[in-house]
Nucleic acid binder design. Sequence first.
DNA 1: ACCTGAACACCGTTCAAGT
DNA 2: ACCTGAACACCGTTCAAGT
Lengths: 234, 234
Amino acid sequence: MALHAETVARRAPLNRERVLQTAVDLADAGGIEDLSMRRLAQELGVVPMALYKHVANKEELLDGMVEIVVREIDAPDPDSDWKTAVRQRILSARRALLRHPWGRRVLESRNAPTPTVLAYMDSMIGMLRSGGLSIDLTHHVMHAIGSRMFGFSQELFTENGSAAADVTLPAATLAQIAAIYPNIAEVVARASHDEASVVGSGCDDQFEFEFSLDLLLDGFERLHLQRWSSTQPS
Amino acid sequence: MALHAETVARRAPLNRERVLQTAVDLADAGGIEDLSMRRLAQELGVVPMALYKHVANKEELLDGMVEIVVREIDAPDPDSDWKTAVRQRILSARRALLRHPWGRRVLESRNAPTPTVLAYMDSMIGMLRSGGLSIDLTHHVMHAIGSRMFGFSQELFTENGSAAADVTLPAATLAQIAAIYPNIAEVVARASHDEASVVGSGCDDQFEFEFSLDLLLDGFERLHLQRWSSTQPS
DNA sequence: ACCTGAACACCGTTCAAGT
DNA sequence: ACCTGAACACCGTTCAAGT
């Protein structure tokens, strides 16, 4: 009896908030593949089925985790012009995603947007409209930004560290690669020469992200200034 | 004895080619989530362990499936200018991916690029270099295109059909959504009005893909013409 | 009313035994 | 040498029994 009471008292009462936050912590620490309902229950000191009191199923758990990540994105700066404000906000989203590397994969696996995601999108549209962009242009801009608005890049093979064109192989095999893929070798050689300070990939992810983001934003601005319309393409 | 001989004769001899092609067919028909080693073995009329004679593990199976998809991408047209040739090739990649909707997810899950993927990237770099782009610009262009070179879009919640901003809900709840997300509602209302002919999403995926692809390609061309360099940003 | 153990229907893969 | 059944260590979730 006493033992039983002590056991109950020792563990903090489970609630949805604590379930979600522990799931986030687990994914942050061990990656999303280490997160299972059974593993999460173990971490919380309960039996797996106890979780189903607070989340309907694993999908709802993942939805809740997405909400936590998206809520970390800074509010828009009302004093900046639309392009600067959008840029800053997306860079803030990227920082949130760097804190939670599993966020990208999980967000992309969702079937439907959660309320927080919809609110973020609504806010983003509002920023573009406040900048004077037409509804038409805003619509296509939202498609063009796509999940980049959450700070996703669209790079190759970055999930697990190194990008495809980046070579962490010994120089011996690099020569062999050059024989088969001469163009890749040329680019890699140049990149590693220019940016030798960057360890690992040899590429500056932040630079690459801003490079493509700015290319798109500049394109949007150009279309806006020339009063682009989808019915009369230039 | 006779029965046994008949059983052996009835099933075509297993080989790597047939294992991979059957896996592709299964994924095409039932989605990637229906593809398991056990399910694939069943389809081929063998015991699960028989597959491990032809592929080391499931990862290698998925690699092989990626190779099949990427090999379907058309070769570059040597007579077109670089921008047109790149554009055509990426649109061909997109068609391949539309035939194998699981391709995106599987390709993104790979840890390292397969030989066919590397060859495709090498060829893409070659096209840019032939167009006169500097190694420096080519490098950053490759990052900026990223997985879009395989025909991936970066749209939201498109995996399972409808994009986030698209409303397939009854009009009654649309009004409720408008109260909470007025900016989304405004864009959706306009889009469904303009493109009422398109069923489902109300958005023309092909148009959106080409819109952002051309924005990027035009940006690349502009940087090339003004002799852009990463060491001296404009 | 609440909690929970056992069970179900799956996974990918290992391993040892059988032919 | 080749093939294969059983087993291992997992999943998410259901369900009925226990308190």
